[in-house]
Design a protein around this nucleic acid. Structure first.
Lengths: 223, 223
DNA sequence: TAGATTGTTAATCGATTAACAATC
DNA sequence: TAGATTGTTAATCGATTAACAATC
């Protein structure tokens, strides 16, 4: 992977993990770390870590390793944590409310501006200080505030329309928590990132089923 | 990929997506589908789909394609959907409650047996018909009922201990929703599947930041 | 039968790992 | 300086794509 060449999704998916691990090291008071130590703690090879970082530039010092603070800072910068991203939540049901209350948006560089719903029981209220507006007023608010990301926790049947409206209103990304695969045209420039609980549980289901098989029919390693 | 050889994680991660897409096709009344049509609808190549399915056997008919019903059934079987898996939830806070109320465990072949928490305000109550016990009684219940998976929605600081107790009590998998990377020994045979919201949002953050850059400095395609 | 599409092997591509000179 | 560890290129490995005979 040459520097500045297009970064593969495999690398992109590891960046947040690096960031998380470095945060933990930082909290634990670790000042410097080598690629091999970091790799061991994350189940990666030293080579892979150096290769990954090489995509973005040289953040270490030969003979010394990486300074935890500054590497964390660099990766945070790459991830766009200091860009003042903003976000709105569509769907203030159980999951939407839980995320509004629990999730540390600001730790990830996002400011949560508002939530939208259609239920008259929640419209007009606040959830953890976040105002809930009626969905009818979505475009109105997005015309006034720059909103980078729309978080979708609407019912599956409402997901596509909600996504379309957000995309039309100019958001740059959709964070999709519905079990629906959003259909957003490639050339729209809107990025979709989905969190599919079902996919995750079914993958786990597969893995434990395999595990069981392996335990029943023990190791006939084909030599 | 030879048949019955170890299946790569890339393939495992696609299986639930196939299952989901086939379910949608089924609902739409589609009876048969070719690998190329399925591929187009999912953004994959026909070749990749055939190669993936080849890991598990021949589910299609030459000259015809795949019957949606039976392929869905086969993939469901591979994923272990009919194995009567069971699950308990640890942590009945906002997120835990939202999942208990919203998530269709049974659609994914899981029966939710109970939830556990330490808060006296929720211990002894029911959430959507699911009883909430005190964490102290975890081992007691797991000694009586076979529990395949423990879902972790406890606070980050409680995650490792909760995971350890579940593993010791014999669960086969941990479905981890905390932002903590569980440390479970490889040889324990316990599979960990994590849903890291932060990682997902940061990946999205990276992608929209790139998108912005691309729009500002338009296409100097190097010919 | 002719046409379509799979199952399966071979070729290509990309990601990971290895190696080592550069240098702190 | 000597030792350690990075940055970076080269080699290897694995996943994806292409090709095509088999066959419905």
């Amino acid at each position: 992977m040459k520097r500045n060449a297009k970064v593969s999704t495999a690398v992109i998916r590891r960046l947040p993990r690096y960031y998380r691990q470095l945060s933990e090291l930082q909290e634990a008071g670790v000042v410097r770390i080598s690629s091999s130590a970091l790799g061991k703690s994350m189940g990666l090879t030293a080579s892979q870590i150096r290769q990954d970082l090489f995509c973005f530039g040289g953040f270490g010092q030969q003979g010394y390793g990486y300074k935890v603070d500054s590497l964390k800072g660099e990766i945070g910068e790459i991830l766009g944590i200091n860009q003042g991203h903003t976000l709105v939540v569509l769907g203030a049901g159980n999951l939407g409310r839980a995320l509004i209350k629990n999730f540390k948006f600001s730790s990830n560089g996002f400011q949560l501006l508002a939530a939208f719903d259609v239920d008259p029981k929640v419209v007009g209220t606040q959830i953890a200080g976040v105002p809930v507006y009626h969905m009818d007023r979505l475009e109105e608010l997005l015309a006034v505030h720059r909103v980078d990301v729309g978080l979708l926790t609407v019912p599956m049947a409402a997901a596509q329309e909600a996504g379309d409206r957000l995309a039309a209103a100019g958001v740059k990304g959709l964070w999709n928590f519905t079990n629906y695969e959003l259909n957003i045209p490639q050339d729209s420039g809107v990025v979709v990132e989905s969190v599919h609980f079902s996919d995750s549980l079914l993958a786990l289901s597969y893995m434990i089923s395999q595990q069981e098989k392996a335990e029943k029919a023990p190791e006939e390693e084909p030599q």
